[in-house]
Nucleic acid binder design. Structure first.
Lengths: 107, 107
DNA sequence: ACGAACGGTAAGCTACGACTAACGTAATTG
DNA sequence: CAATTACGTTAGTCGTAGCTTACCGTTCGT
Protein backbone atom coordinates (compact mmCIF):
# COMPACT_ATOMS: atom_id res chain seq x y z
CA UNK A 1 0.00 0.00 0.00
CA UNK A 2 1.28 3.37 -0.94
CA UNK A 3 1.46 6.20 1.51
CA UNK A 4 -0.67 8.48 -0.56
CA UNK A 5 -1.85 11.79 0.79
CA UNK A 6 -4.73 13.49 -1.07
CA UNK A 7 -3.69 16.99 -1.96
CA UNK A 8 -4.89 19.83 0.23
CA UNK A 9 -6.44 22.91 -1.32
CA UNK A 10 -3.66 25.08 0.10
CA UNK A 11 -0.96 22.81 -1.21
CA UNK A 12 -2.64 22.96 -4.60
CA UNK A 13 -2.68 26.76 -4.67
CA UNK A 14 0.86 26.85 -3.35
CA UNK A 15 2.22 26.46 -6.87
CA UNK A 16 2.19 29.61 -9.05
CA UNK A 17 1.49 27.63 -12.22
CA UNK A 18 -1.58 26.07 -10.65
CA UNK A 19 -2.77 29.50 -9.57
CA UNK A 20 -2.44 30.60 -13.19
CA UNK A 21 -4.55 27.63 -14.24
CA UNK A 22 -7.16 28.53 -11.65
CA UNK A 23 -7.26 32.09 -12.94
CA UNK A 24 -7.75 30.81 -16.48
CA UNK A 25 -10.56 28.52 -15.40
CA UNK A 26 -12.17 31.32 -13.40
CA UNK A 27 -12.80 33.13 -16.68
CA UNK A 28 -14.33 30.18 -18.44
CA UNK A 29 -14.08 26.38 -18.63
CA UNK A 30 -11.31 25.16 -20.91
CA UNK A 31 -9.83 22.00 -22.35
CA UNK A 32 -6.35 20.79 -21.43
CA UNK A 33 -4.83 21.83 -24.74
CA UNK A 34 -6.25 25.32 -24.43
CA UNK A 35 -4.65 25.74 -21.04
CA UNK A 36 -1.35 24.38 -22.34
CA UNK A 37 -1.07 26.93 -25.12
CA UNK A 38 -2.03 29.72 -22.73
CA UNK A 39 0.79 28.75 -20.38
CA UNK A 40 4.57 28.44 -20.84
CA UNK A 41 4.61 24.74 -20.01
CA UNK A 42 3.95 21.51 -21.88
CA UNK A 43 0.60 19.77 -22.05
CA UNK A 44 1.56 16.83 -19.80
CA UNK A 45 2.60 19.33 -17.14
CA UNK A 46 -0.84 20.91 -17.31
CA UNK A 47 -2.37 17.46 -17.02
CA UNK A 48 -0.44 16.76 -13.84
CA UNK A 49 -1.43 20.09 -12.32
CA UNK A 50 -5.06 19.48 -13.15
CA UNK A 51 -4.85 16.14 -11.38
CA UNK A 52 -3.69 17.87 -8.21
CA UNK A 53 -6.36 20.55 -8.48
CA UNK A 54 -9.00 17.89 -9.03
CA UNK A 55 -7.91 15.90 -5.97
CA UNK A 56 -8.09 19.10 -3.96
CA UNK A 57 -11.67 19.59 -5.12
CA UNK A 58 -10.90 22.89 -6.80
CA UNK A 59 -11.86 21.79 -10.32
CA UNK A 60 -14.22 19.38 -11.97
CA UNK A 61 -13.85 17.79 -15.39
CA UNK A 62 -16.27 16.60 -18.01
CA UNK A 63 -15.71 14.49 -21.09
CA UNK A 64 -16.63 16.24 -24.34
CA UNK A 65 -15.81 13.88 -27.18
CA UNK A 66 -12.07 13.41 -27.41
CA UNK A 67 -11.53 16.49 -25.33
CA UNK A 68 -11.88 17.02 -21.60
CA UNK A 69 -13.32 20.24 -20.26
CA UNK A 70 -12.13 21.47 -16.89
CA UNK A 71 -14.01 24.04 -14.91
CA UNK A 72 -13.49 25.75 -11.56
CA UNK A 73 -15.41 24.25 -8.65
CA UNK A 74 -17.07 27.04 -6.63
CA UNK A 75 -17.56 24.73 -3.65
CA UNK A 76 -13.84 24.05 -3.36
CA UNK A 77 -13.02 27.73 -3.54
CA UNK A 78 -15.69 28.49 -0.96
CA UNK A 79 -14.21 25.93 1.42
CA UNK A 80 -10.87 27.72 1.45
CA UNK A 81 -12.61 31.05 1.80
CA UNK A 82 -14.50 29.87 4.88
CA UNK A 83 -11.29 28.63 6.45
CA UNK A 84 -9.68 32.02 5.92
CA UNK A 85 -12.74 33.59 7.48
CA UNK A 86 -12.23 31.73 10.74
CA UNK A 87 -8.55 32.72 10.81
CA UNK A 88 -9.57 36.26 10.14
CA UNK A 89 -12.21 36.30 12.86
CA UNK A 90 -9.92 34.79 15.48
CA UNK A 91 -7.11 37.15 14.51
CA UNK A 92 -9.39 40.13 14.97
CA UNK A 93 -10.45 38.68 18.30
CA UNK A 94 -6.87 38.61 19.54
CA UNK A 95 -6.26 42.02 18.05
CA UNK A 96 -8.20 44.09 20.55
CA UNK A 97 -5.14 45.11 22.56
CA UNK A 98 -3.29 46.49 19.56
CA UNK A 99 -4.00 50.08 20.56
CA UNK A 100 -1.91 49.57 23.67
CA UNK A 101 1.16 48.58 21.64
CA UNK A 102 2.08 51.48 19.31
CA UNK A 103 5.53 50.01 18.51
CA UNK A 104 4.24 47.60 15.92
CA UNK A 105 6.72 46.89 13.12
CA UNK A 106 4.87 46.45 9.86
CA UNK A 107 7.84 45.99 7.57
CA UNK B 1 21.99 42.51 -7.32
CA UNK B 2 20.09 39.50 -6.26
CA UNK B 3 16.96 38.39 -7.98
CA UNK B 4 14.82 38.47 -4.89
CA UNK B 5 11.13 37.69 -5.10
CA UNK B 6 8.99 38.76 -2.14
CA UNK B 7 6.92 35.81 -1.02
CA UNK B 8 3.31 35.65 -2.09
CA UNK B 9 0.59 34.93 0.45
CA UNK B 10 -0.34 31.75 -1.40
CA UNK B 11 3.24 30.55 -1.53
CA UNK B 12 3.46 31.21 2.19
CA UNK B 13 0.37 29.16 3.01
CA UNK B 14 1.49 26.45 0.59
CA UNK B 15 3.64 24.91 3.31
CA UNK B 16 1.82 22.81 5.97
CA UNK B 17 4.21 23.87 8.72
CA UNK B 18 3.50 27.52 8.00
CA UNK B 19 -0.21 26.82 8.09
CA UNK B 20 0.29 25.27 11.52
CA UNK B 21 2.08 28.43 12.62
CA UNK B 22 -0.77 30.55 11.29
CA UNK B 23 -3.27 28.45 13.22
CA UNK B 24 -1.24 28.89 16.40
CA UNK B 25 -1.07 32.64 15.89
CA UNK B 26 -4.78 32.78 15.14
CA UNK B 27 -5.43 31.68 18.72
CA UNK B 28 -3.16 34.23 20.30
CA UNK B 29 0.13 36.08 19.65
CA UNK B 30 3.22 34.08 20.58
CA UNK B 31 6.97 34.35 20.80
CA UNK B 32 9.29 32.36 18.53
CA UNK B 33 10.28 29.93 21.26
CA UNK B 34 6.68 29.21 22.12
CA UNK B 35 5.93 28.31 18.53
CA UNK B 36 9.03 26.13 18.34
CA UNK B 37 8.05 23.98 21.30
CA UNK B 38 4.50 23.66 19.99
CA UNK B 39 5.80 22.34 16.67
CA UNK B 40 7.95 19.34 15.72
CA UNK B 41 10.73 21.49 14.26
CA UNK B 42 13.65 23.47 15.59
CA UNK B 43 13.58 27.13 16.54
CA UNK B 44 15.66 28.35 13.56
CA UNK B 45 13.21 26.61 11.26
CA UNK B 46 10.37 28.53 12.87
CA UNK B 47 12.33 31.73 12.44
CA UNK B 48 12.73 31.09 8.73
CA UNK B 49 9.03 30.35 8.32
CA UNK B 50 8.11 33.51 10.20
CA UNK B 51 10.31 35.49 7.83
CA UNK B 52 8.35 34.18 4.87
CA UNK B 53 5.01 34.84 6.55
CA UNK B 54 6.14 38.35 7.42
CA UNK B 55 7.21 39.11 3.85
CA UNK B 56 3.84 37.87 2.69
CA UNK B 57 2.14 40.32 5.04
CA UNK B 58 0.40 37.57 6.99
CA UNK B 59 2.05 38.30 10.35
CA UNK B 60 3.49 41.27 12.19
CA UNK B 61 6.12 41.21 14.91
CA UNK B 62 6.83 43.34 17.92
CA UNK B 63 9.88 43.51 20.15
CA UNK B 64 9.14 42.70 23.78
CA UNK B 65 12.40 42.82 25.68
CA UNK B 66 14.65 40.01 24.54
CA UNK B 67 11.70 38.26 23.01
CA UNK B 68 9.81 38.92 19.82
CA UNK B 69 6.06 38.55 19.70
CA UNK B 70 4.46 37.50 16.43
CA UNK B 71 0.80 38.01 15.73
CA UNK B 72 -1.49 37.25 12.80
CA UNK B 73 -2.19 40.17 10.49
CA UNK B 74 -5.93 40.35 9.70
CA UNK B 75 -5.31 42.58 6.68
CA UNK B 76 -3.09 39.98 5.04
CA UNK B 77 -5.64 37.25 5.61
CA UNK B 78 -8.40 39.48 4.31
CA UNK B 79 -6.44 40.13 1.11
CA UNK B 80 -6.35 36.42 0.30
CA UNK B 81 -9.99 36.08 1.22
CA UNK B 82 -10.98 38.83 -1.21
CA UNK B 83 -8.98 37.21 -3.97
CA UNK B 84 -10.79 33.93 -3.40
CA UNK B 85 -14.04 35.85 -3.49
CA UNK B 86 -13.40 37.09 -7.03
CA UNK B 87 -12.49 33.57 -8.17
CA UNK B 88 -15.64 32.33 -6.55
CA UNK B 89 -17.83 34.97 -8.18
CA UNK B 90 -16.39 34.43 -11.65
CA UNK B 91 -16.65 30.68 -11.28
CA UNK B 92 -20.30 30.97 -10.41
CA UNK B 93 -20.74 33.27 -13.38
CA UNK B 94 -19.39 30.64 -15.74
CA UNK B 95 -21.39 27.98 -13.97
CA UNK B 96 -24.83 28.90 -15.27
CA UNK B 97 -24.86 26.22 -17.97
CA UNK B 98 -24.13 23.42 -15.54
CA UNK B 99 -27.76 22.25 -15.58
CA UNK B 100 -27.38 21.40 -19.24
CA UNK B 101 -24.45 19.05 -18.57
CA UNK B 102 -25.57 16.34 -16.12
CA UNK B 103 -22.54 14.15 -16.84
CA UNK B 104 -20.28 16.05 -14.47
CA UNK B 105 -17.57 13.92 -12.91
CA UNK B 106 -17.01 15.04 -9.35
CA UNK B 107 -14.49 12.44 -8.27
C1' DA C 1 30.07 42.96 34.10
C1' DC C 2 29.34 38.07 33.34
C1' DG C 3 26.30 34.41 32.10
C1' DA C 4 21.94 32.94 30.44
C1' DA C 5 17.87 33.40 27.57
C1' DC C 6 16.01 34.69 23.11
C1' DG C 7 16.23 34.97 18.34
C1' DG C 8 18.10 35.89 13.51
C1' DT C 9 21.59 34.27 9.91
C1' DA C 10 24.87 31.22 7.23
C1' DA C 11 26.26 26.87 5.50
C1' DG C 12 25.25 22.42 4.13
C1' DC C 13 22.55 18.32 3.30
C1' DT C 14 18.44 15.87 1.76
C1' DA C 15 14.08 15.09 -0.17
C1' DC C 16 10.40 16.33 -2.88
C1' DG C 17 8.04 18.67 -6.57
C1' DA C 18 7.82 20.50 -11.33
C1' DC C 19 9.12 19.73 -15.85
C1' DT C 20 10.18 17.22 -20.38
C1' DA C 21 10.30 13.27 -23.41
C1' DA C 22 8.36 9.00 -24.75
C1' DC C 23 4.64 5.87 -24.83
C1' DG C 24 -0.18 4.11 -24.67
C1' DT C 25 -5.24 4.81 -25.18
C1' DA C 26 -9.75 6.59 -26.61
C1' DA C 27 -12.37 9.32 -29.87
C1' DT C 28 -12.97 11.90 -34.26
C1' DT C 29 -12.11 12.43 -39.33
C1' DG C 30 -11.12 11.21 -44.06
C1' DC D 1 -9.64 1.26 -41.47
C1' DA D 2 -5.68 4.19 -41.23
C1' DA D 3 -4.43 8.79 -39.64
C1' DT D 4 -4.98 12.43 -36.55
C1' DT D 5 -6.27 14.77 -32.47
C1' DA D 6 -6.63 15.05 -27.52
C1' DC D 7 -5.27 13.25 -22.87
C1' DG D 8 -3.31 10.60 -19.26
C1' DT D 9 0.72 8.09 -17.39
C1' DT D 10 5.45 6.74 -16.66
C1' DA D 11 10.35 7.33 -16.19
C1' DG D 12 13.95 10.28 -15.36
C1' DT D 13 16.38 14.78 -14.62
C1' DC D 14 17.05 19.02 -12.09
C1' DG D 15 16.24 22.87 -9.18
C1' DT D 16 14.88 24.41 -4.85
C1' DA D 17 12.40 24.49 -0.44
C1' DG D 18 12.80 22.95 4.24
C1' DC D 19 15.48 21.17 7.91
C1' DT D 20 19.48 20.97 11.27
C1' DT D 21 23.85 22.46 13.22
C1' DA D 22 26.77 26.10 14.34
C1' DC D 23 27.60 30.86 15.15
C1' DC D 24 26.73 35.73 16.45
C1' DG D 25 24.30 39.90 18.21
C1' DT D 26 20.91 41.61 21.93
C1' DT D 27 18.59 41.90 26.06
C1' DC D 28 17.64 40.57 30.88
C1' DG D 29 19.08 38.94 35.48
C1' DT D 30 22.27 38.78 39.48
Amino acid sequence: METYRPADGWDALGDPTRRAIVECLAERPRAVGELAEALPISRPAVSQHLKVLKEAGLVTDRAAGARRIYRLNPAGVAALRDQLDTYWARALDAFQDVAGHPDEEKS
